[in-house]
Nucleic acid binder design. Structure first.
Length: 436
RNA sequence: CGGGGCGUGGCGCAGUCUGGUAGCGCGCCAGUUUUGGGUACUGGAGGCCCCCGGUUCGAAUCCGGGCGCCCCGACCA
C-alpha cells in the first residue's frame, strides 16, 4: 500500500477525550473514530489489526476442534424469556421493538441462541462433544463506557460454547479451550495469565479469567512471580494429548484477581507480584444452567434423554487491540508485535523525486510485495521528520529507510521498531532479511 | 445511576465573569524555501460558536429547557 493513497488520518495532537495510552494512540494513529459513547468506526489501519487478531483467534479455535458459525446480532426476546434471563439481565441489554411491536434485543451474548440451535439438530450423545463458536459484534449498554475500545458498548467478541454428555467431557472441553487461550494470547506476543475467577452458582475450579498485566488495567491482580518468566508455548502440549497434567501445572501457579485474592490463605505464596491487569478472556463451565430450562437433551447410550453439560468461552477481540497497545508502546507510539501488525514493513522514501531513491524504493516495494510481505510505502512528498514520526506512531515492526545519502554508499537503513536497533545494509541484504 | 467537568473551523485551545461585526496554534490548499527526526516565509480556504426558546437595538457571552461528550465511583470480553 502506498501511503500517498492510504486513508490514514493521523493526528499530531491528542484529542482531550482520550485518557489512556491505547485510546490516545488509536486515535492519533487513525485507527478508530468514535461515533457515540462506546461505539466506534474502524478505519483502515485499525481494521487491519482487528482482522489479524481475529484470524489468530480463529486459527486457535479451529485447532482446538471448535467449529465456526455466525449468529445474528439481533435476537428475539422469546429465547431469553425461556432461559429466564430476559428479566435478569437488566439495563445492560439493549432492547429494541420492531415494527410489529415484537420485542427484540441486540445480543450481549449468545448462550440461548446457540442452545436453541443445538437442541434443534443434535439428538444423540454420539454427536458429542461439540464446540461451536462465532466472532460477532456484541452490545452491552455499559453504565459508563470508557477507555476507547477497551470498554466500549459495541465490541467484537469470540464466544465459543461446548456441549458434552457428562461433566468429565465438559472438563476436557474446558481444558482444550484453556490451552487454546494460552496459545492464542502467546501468539499475539502477550503474556496472559489465567486467574481463578468467580464460578457463580456452579462452584468448583472451572472458571478462569485471562489477564494481561498492564498499568492501566481495570482490575487489581496478584500472581506468583514465576508467571513473569513462564514460556507457555514452550510447555504447551498438542490438542488431542491428555491435557490434565498441563492444566494442573498452569492452574497450580498462583494467580488471582483482587476479588478472589486471599492474602491470609496459607496456600497463597509469599513471593507475590501485585499488579493491574486487563481481562481479555474468560472461560467457564456452567453445567446445565441453560440446557435445563431450554431442554437441550440428547439420547444417552441407554436411550434415555440426558441434559447436556455446557461451557462458554469468551475472548474480547476488539479489546485485544487496545490491550496489545497498552502492553506494547513507547513515547513515540505503538509497537506492534509481528503477529498482529497491520503491515510488516514501513518503507520510507526520504526524497521522493530523486530518481535513484525512487527507483530503489520502487524495487523494494515490488520485491517485498512479490514475496507476500505487507508493506506500507511512504511515498509522500513530506519532510523526513514527518515520515519518521508517523512511522513510529503507527508502530510497524520494521522500518526500511531509503535516501540519497545511504544510496551513495549503496546502503539502506533497516530499523527494528521495538528496540530502535538500526543497521546499514545493501538493498539485496535488506530485502533478503525481510523476506526470510 | 450518584458526584464533577466540558461542548467555539479537522485537532488543541482563548474569548463567556463585564453582551457590540469570532480569534490563536497545529493541520489543510497554493507558492517560495528547506531536504536524514514534525523546516521557514508569504498568501488562502474553512465556523448553524451543540440544539430549541426567551431577554435585548444587538447574544458564543445573560435566562429557561433539551441533547451530547469526558472524568471519579458501583458492573463487565
Amino acid at each position: 500500500m502506498r501511503m500517498s493513497a492510504f486513508f490514514l488520518p493521523t493526528l499530531k495532537e491528542t484529542p482531550t477525550e482520550a485518557q489512556i495510552v491505547s485510546h490516545r494512540l488509536m486515535l492519533r494513529a487513525g485507527m478508530i473514530r468514535q461515533t457515540s459513547a462506546g461505539i466506534y468506526s474502524w478505519l483502515p489501519l485499525g481494521w487491519r489489526v482487528l482482522r489479524r487478531i481475529e484470524q489468530i483467534v480463529r486459527e486457535e479455535q479451529d485447532a482446538a476442534g471448535a467449529q465456526e458459525v455466525l449468529m445474528p446480532t439481533i435476537q428475539s426476546a422469546d429465547l431469553w424469556r425461556e432461559s429466564g434471563r430476559y428479566d435478569d439481565y437488566g439495563k445492560e441489554m439493549l432492547r429494541i421493538t420492531d415494527r410489529h411491536e415484537r420485542e427484540m434485543l441486540y445480543g450481549p451474548t449468545n448462550e440461548e441462541m446457540i442452545t436453541d440451535i443445538f437442541r434443534t439438530f443434535v439428538k444423540s450423545y454420539r454427536q458429542l462433544p461439540l464446540n461451536l463458536y462465532h466472532i460477532q459484534w456484541k452490545f452491552r449498554d455499559e453504565i459508563r463506557p470508557r477507555f476507547g475500545v477497551m470498554r466500549g458498548r459495541e465490541f467484537l467478541m469470540k464466544d465459543a460454547y461446548s456441549f458434552d454428555i457428562d461433566a468429565a467431557g465438559a472438563k476436557r472441553s474446558y481444558q482444550a479451550m484453556f490451552l487454546a487461550y494460552l496459545r492464542t494470547f502467546a501468539r499475539m506476543g502477550l503474556k496472559a495469565i489465567p486467574m481463578r475467577a468467580d464460578t457463580g452458582p456452579i462452584g468448583g475450579d472451572l472458571s478462569h479469567e485471562f489477564i494481561i498485566l498492564a498499568e492501566t488495567g481495570e482490575s487489581g491482580v496478584f500472581c506468583d512471580k514465576q508467571w513473569l518468566d513462564l514460556d507457555v508455548l514452550a510447555e504447551a502440549p498438542n490438542h488431542g494429548d491428555d491435557l490434565q497434567a498441563f492444566f494442573d501445572r498452569f492452574t497450580s501457579i498462583y494467580a488471582a484477581t483482587d476479588e478472589k485474592h486471599d492474602a491470609d490463605d496459607p496456600s497463597t505464596p509469599k513471593d507475590l507480584v501485585s499488579a493491574r491487569g486487563i481481562e481479555v478472556g474468560h472461560i467457564f463451565y456452567f453445567g446445565t444452567k441453560y440446557s435445563k430450562p431450554m431442554n437441550a437433551a440428547v439420547a444417552g447410550p441407554d436411550g434415555e434423554p440426558v441434559l447436556v453439560e455446557m461451557g462458554s468461552y469468551g475472548i474480547g477481540v476488539s479489546r485485544l487491540v487496545a490491550a496489545i497497545i497498552e502492553a506494547s508502546h513507547d513515547e513515540n507510539g505503538i509497537i506492534w508485535p509481528d503477529a498482529v501488525a497491520p503491515f510488516k514493513v514501513g518503507l520510507i522514501n526520504l526524497k521522493p523525486g530523486d530518481a535513484e531513491t525512487d527507483r530503489v524504493c520502487g524495487d523494494l516495494y515490488a520485491g517485498l510485495g512479490a514475496s507476500g510481505v505487507d508493506v506500507l510505502y511512504d511515498d509522500r512528498d513530506e519532510r523526513p521528520g514527518v515520515k519518521f514520526a508517523d512511522m513510529d506512531l503507527i508502530g510497524l515492526p520494521w522500518h526500511l529507510v531509503v535516501g540519497p545519502r545511504g544510496l551513495k554508499n549503496g546502503t539502506v537503513e533497516l530499523k527494528r521498531r521495538a528496540t530502535g536497533a538500526r543497521e546499514e545494509l545493501s538493498v539485496e541484504a535488506a530485502l533478503a532479511k525481510l523476506i526470510a
